[in-house]
């Protein structure tokens, strides 16, 4: 392993790293923006909308992100809409994540026992109060493990961005290897940067999970 090579490549990797987490986290934000309302529509079984949401969830959970990105990146221009690779990456990740987040929040909502609603009803709470004060807080804490898993999964999925020429970590590593053949150094740095990206999320996720579990069910 040549440390001079590593030192030389470091700035390039940092740049790719920040791009990757930027697009990754924007995508994750979009996935919350889609997933939460989508889960509500399924939970309340809102006619038409919930069916559309279900179809969306199935479609995006059962196709690879790469295919989705190709559709957005090469398909939209055919309809006269051009978007940058970055927008495409964030949007694709957001749509994929939205489907997973919708499922995570839906199962959290449905995990709240029916007896909780009955207790609230017996106290004459309105439907809105029941949802806001009783169901939602419990659903959020029980969906934490699934949400954390989704966040980590989505951050890892960013590695397919290279296919639409986004200069993310994967693209950078492949590019450098193709140019200078420093395979060992490039791959080691790639692994390390993914660890730097994911480890904090993983550790933080564990803490949040423990907190959420404690607030619901005790140790």
């Amino acid at each position: 392993m040549d440390f001079n090579v590593i030192r030389e490549y470091l700035p390039i990797y940092w740049e790719a790293f920040f791009l990757t987490i930027k697009i990754g986290w924007i995508g994750i934000l979009i996935s919350f923006g889609i997933g939460i309302p989508a889960s509500f529509s399924m939970f309340f079984k809102i006619p038409v909308i919930s069916q559309i949401v279900k179809a969306y969830v199935e479609l995006f959970r059962n196709t690879p992100l790469l295919v989705q990105l190709f559709f957005i990146y090469f398909g939209l221009p055919k309809l006269g809409i051009t978007i940058s690779a970055q927008t495409c990456g964030a949007l694709g990740l957001g749509l994929l994540g939205g489907a997973y987040m919708a499922e995570a929040f839906r199962s959290g909502l449905e995990a709240v026992p029916k007896t909780q609603s009955e207790a609230a009803f017996a106290l004459n709470m309105s439907k809105g109060q029941l949802f806001r004060l009783i169901i939602l807080p419990q659903a959020l804490s029980s969906s934490v493990p699934a949400v954390v898993a989704n966040v980590i999964f989505l951050l890892k999925e960013t590695s397919v961005f290279s296919a639409i020429s986004l200069m993310d970590l994967m693209f950078t590593a492949k590019d450098l290897i193709g140019l200078y053949y420093n395979t060992t150094e490039c791959l080691t740095m790639l692994v390390l940067f993914y660890v730097i990206m994911l480890l904090p999320v993983s550790v933080l996720g564990n803490i949040v999970e423990k907190k959420a579990r404690f607030s619901m069910f005790g140790e």
Binding site: Q116, E118, A119, A122, I134, S141
Partner: peptide, 13 residues
């Protein structure tokens, strides 16, 4: 009307 259930059903959060 007040009601108390067999399973208490306090709000855990």
């Amino acid at each position: 009307i007040g009601m108390v259930f067999q399973s208490y059903d306090l709000f855990p959060h």
